[in-house]
Amino acid sequence: MEKILVGLKRVVDSNIRVRVKSDGSGVETEGVKMSINPFDEIALEEALRIRERGDASEVIVVSIGGTETQQQLRTGLAMGADRAIQVEIDHAADPLTCARILLALVNKENPGLVMLGKQAIDNDNNQTGQMLAALWARPQATFASAVVIEGTAVTVTREVDMGLETIEVDLPAVVTTDLRLNEPRYVKLPDIMKAKKKPLEQIPFADLDVEVATEIKETNFEPPLERQRGVIVDDVAGLVAALKDKGLL
């Protein structure tokens, strides 16, 4: 195949413990470290490996958002993507609108494969890849832990509740990635310099002729109910007694 399209979402870094704002309007993102959604990073790594094996010739990274999202695209270019597209939009896009935007890019670029993280670690929606596959009327292989390109098809091992499911889907297709698919490479300094010269195209959202979906309104954020620290027992006898006390043994 010629091209692989990879979606990169800018999210609060996975090591940050987010705090809900006191007015319930959202979570604190001011001054917080932002990164590529870790699942998307895995998607990009896999796309690069597919290209390095000779099964694809170009990897394009895409992000949907404001100018700040170019940081994540530059990181993607430094990892090894060939070029980047930023779809400029000034508000957070819902999953269906994102899927429609990606479909517009798919129709423009005709990739053989679209690779996305299975979910973004901010809203945890786990929707965009499946939605793109539906709108595109193409296969989806979600939660991938192994991806093998075989001519015009791809065999994907999926992490499911029962164990590991393997499916074979025809290309073009959408693959969403799970944690154990690979370990993304580290970016080296010379690569960051090189990435500055790689093409980064900006496409205003309005130019894509995409209808904005009716979003699901988020009306209030609250912290979860915290569990309280309990008791520390001294030994196994104490543990057994405490469990018996609660009627659990």
Binding site: P95, L96, N126, T142, I216
Partner: peptide, 22 residues
């Protein structure tokens, strides 16, 4: 579950709506 997470967004997209997850 992985069954519903895989399936339901595909249904939602065909119906032209966003999904409420979890």
């Amino acid at each position: 579950t992985t069954f519903g997470k895989d399936l339901m967004p595909r249904v939602a997209a065909l119906l032209g709506v966003n999904q409420i997850s979890d």
